[in-house]
């Protein structure tokens, strides 16, 4: 069964280990500003919430790409960027309605979560199990995806 990231904001303490692990895995440096997963802080609610790509079915980024640079990793289901093909046009960064594809000035390409090829470092680094990598059916993502799909009625099959 395919797995996906499951995020439980209630367990997040805001320690940013996930950002450290992600940036180290993808850039070779511990630098949260380069992380593909991001922990958002809700001061008024006293909450932290990690957030990254849900590898959504719609794949807005993939559909918007003009040069076929985004493909699906068949082993993980992740939508992955090919650095060789990406020209850096950034159309996917405005097409993704979740804001999880971002342009990197360092590389001149776009970057996004690739599930680390099936061993997501954010999940292994998380000390409180706020981020886990579990069978897809279990995850809160299905709820989130359902609500996201409802909230973006750009198409509707009428029959």
């Amino acid at each position: 069964m395919q797995k996906s990231l499951n995020i439980d904001p209630a367990k997040c303490t805001g320690c940013l280990q996930c950002e450290m692990a992600c940036s180290y895995e993808h850039t070779g440096a511990f630098n949260p500003s380069k992380s593909f997963i991001k922990v958002f802080t809700f001061h008024d609610e006293g909450r932290f919430a990690p957030y990254t790509c849900t590898q959504c079915e719609e794949a807005w980024c993939q559909r918007a790409c003009p040069v076929d640079a985004i493909s699906i990793d068949l082993s993980t289901g992740a939508k992955v960027i090919s650095d060789d093909k990406c020209v850096g046009c950034k159309v996917c960064t405005i097409a993704c309605p979740f804001g999880t594809v971002n342009y990197s000035q360092d590389t001149g390409k776009v970057v996004k979560c690739d599930l680390c090829g099936g061993d997501p470092k954010c999940a292994s680094a998380c000390p409180t199990d706020a981020i886990t990598y579990v069978d897809a059916d279990w995850t809160g993502y299905s709820r989130m995806l359902a609500s996201a799909a409802k909230s973006l009625p750009s198409i509707e099959v009428t029959t």
Partner: peptide
């Protein structure tokens, strides 16, 4: 601004 700009589309298109 280059980070998370797509969410502007999300906010607009979902009429949240």
């Amino acid at each position: 601004k280059t980070q998370h700009i797509g969410v502007l589309r999300g906010l607009i298109e979902s009429r949240i």
